[in-house]
């Protein structure tokens, strides 16, 4: 922990983008400023770095270690004979469920991402810009936010009611349009649709709030000026709002990808016991089942490490595509 920390600090370069010091005493002043800035950065980053190391660093290291073992219920670290045995099991498809689970996960993450990053953008723009009545907009936002506020158990209960084969509104409506007898939680393409919707409703509001608060920071003058020049709402959205939302879009997309890869609680709560046959067993749920139902903590850790690696690669791709380097730079003078 301390090594990483001190490296970070040693490497600190106290160069603000704009130099302030001028005049005769400039040298001494800037030296003092330098010192105070070092102190400043250390002070500002310490709590955060501590949290990062203790809450993430240690568990991470531990799970890498665990993935080389056959750790079971007794929680002892016995290293496996071929050290990478768990990984062989995954990649040589010695476990027949791995490819199925991988497929489900790709479908799940891909489709839900469209809602969580794409549809939430539509929601954000519409409720922040197109719906002018602030009260209406905030009520709508509240409604969209409801699933996120609801404890998982209740949320699962509500979905079980909604998709109930006999009384659920979904079954009733779907029988009108010729989908009679569809069991929304069990029959494969439908159950996967429900899975996507369940998490889409939770994720949509997250992106929406980020987009809305970003849109609200756009100076109204810019929009008024464009309007005065005869721009339509569509032009405003396309030419002013969307370009300014580049950063939030990158953020929400990459973040939601990672969140989705790691999310399983809602699926666990709703499809308790029949997730695999219903085609909703995603990778992280599989990891959970391996650990807390199969008690194969070592194998579970290996699964988790594979998952984290994939997430890492995805993030790298996102950063490349969106020009992350530019985003990484400290903020400069710009609106």
């Amino acid at each position: 922990m301390s090594k990483k920390f001190s490296n970070l600090l040693r490497g600190y370069v106290a160069k603000p983008k704009v130099s302030i010091s001028t005049g005769a005493l400039g040298g001494l002043k800037s030296f003092l400023k330098e010192k105070s800035r070092t102190f400043f950065v250390i002070a500002f980053l310490t709590p955060f770095l501590a949290a990062l190391t203790i809450m993430y660093g240690l568990p991470c290291a531990l799970s890498v270690l665990m993935s080389f073992t056959d750790m079971g219920l007794s929680f002892e670290l016995h290293f496996l004979n071929p050290l990478l045995k768990n990984y062989y099991t995954i990649f040589h498809v010695a476990d027949p469920r791995v490819p199925v689970v991988a497929q489900t996960t790709i479908l799940y993450v891909g489709c839900t991402l469209l809602i969580n990053a794409g549809f939430s953008l539509v929601l954000g723009v519409l409720t922040a810009y197109c719906i002018r009545n602030e009260n209406v907009a905030s009520v709508l936002r509240l409604l969209w936010f409801l699933p996120r506020m609801t404890p998982v158990i209740i949320y699962a209960l509500l979905w079980l009611w909604f998709t109930d084969p006999t009384y659920g509104p979904l079954s009733i409506v779907s029988s009108w349009i010729g989908l009679k007898g569809v069991r929304w939680l069990l029959d494969k393409p439908y159950s996967q649709l429900v899975m996507i919707a369940v998490n889409g409703y939770i994720g949509a509001s997250w992106g929406m709030v980020i987009y809305v608060s970003s849109i609200k920071t756009i100076p109204l003058e810019i929009i008024y000026a464009a309007k005065a020049d005869g721009a339509t709402d569509w032009d405003v959205i396309r030419r002013i709002i969307l370009p300014l939302l580049k950063w939030p879009i990158l953020f929400v997309t990459s973040w939601q990808t990672l969140s989705l890869i790691g999310s399983y609680t809602e699926i666990l709560a709703i499809w308790d016991g029949y997730s695999y046959t219903s085609g909703v067993e995603v990778w992280s749920l599989f990891t959970y089942h391996t650990a807390f139902e199969g008690y194969r903590f070592g194998y579970s850790a290996a699964l988790a490490i594979v998952m984290a690696t994939v997430a890492l690669i995805l993030v790298a791709i996102y950063f490349k595509v969106f020009g992350f380097k530019r985003m990484l730079e400290p903020s400069r003078i710009e609106v």
Partner: peptide
């Protein structure tokens, strides 16, 4: 008998 998975406990008992 229906396929029971996916039915809520509430439905089971009320029915």
């Amino acid at each position: 008998m229906p396929a029971m998975a996916g039915t809520s406990w509430r439905t089971v008992h009320t029915d």
